[in-house]
Amino acid sequence: MTAYLLKRLAIAIATLILASMVVFAVLEILPGDPARLMLGLNASAEQVELLRNQMGLNAPLVLRYLNWVGGLLSLDFGRSYTYSVPVIDLVRERMAVSLPLALIALALSTIIAIPVGLYSASRRGRAGDSIAMGAAQLGVAIPNFWFALMLIYLFAVWLRLVPAGGFPGWSAGVWPALKSLLLPAVALALPQAAILARVARSALIEVLNEDYIRTARAKGLPYRAVLWRHALRNAMIPVLTILGLQFAFLLAGTIIIENVFYLPGLGRLVFQAITQRDLIVVESIVMLLVVAVIAVNLVVDISYAIVDPRLRHRQ
């Protein structure tokens, strides 16, 4: 068990180091001089050179990489070129939008998907199952940003129940803020729920074919109890994997949705930073998301080993 955990941890750290090199290298070859960009076209060559020195852009490559990694580790990401504030402050501010949005979407998706998966699995092959899985098939095919547009048309333009976009900030009160996150969260959650429901259904069906389910039924347990107590618990592993992946996806995947709804979140920040060549912001956020993905995967892997002893010995 310890050996397995150590190996997983070592792989995660190695992936992280490689990823940081890739991010650094990609932004290194990116055309456009940030110093020139900050000073504008009228700046003289000396001025640009001076700023480059100030920003540490002229230091040797390795030194700059180590500096950057050191900064990341101490949560000092540097200052944004365009906003002239520490990146960490920007990230913190934007996280206040993106994190709740991702969590609400994840919660919605789970609340919809698990019951649908249970319903479909227990009614396998019957009309209810076909309808539910047909709907899921449709849900997988819907691009979330188009779904978002349709939601805006229906609930904001036509029914005028919620704002069509923008974010009043948490200082405006919890309810107005939540209200403006509602449509984006639904738009994000539905396609995710469709995927999750399909995974939950097939995992449940797999488990329902197991001998111990028959044993549980044979000893007189009602079907409902078997479904919830035995089947659902054992089907959780694939469901949790997908949930983990989806959480990481939602954090990054809000990019387009945040643009649709004009939400000042992490995705919109990184999108604007990319178009404005604000490298420090881009590298910091990409690295943060990579860390999030790797961490989530690691946690999922470790929890498997704890939940399922068989996996421990396989590696």
Partner: peptide, 18 residues
Amino acid sequence: DLVFAFPALLSAIMITAI
């Protein structure tokens, strides 16, 4: 693992932007 660690959509946006 390395490629999977990068959120695909974000990276695609980065590549096309660059």
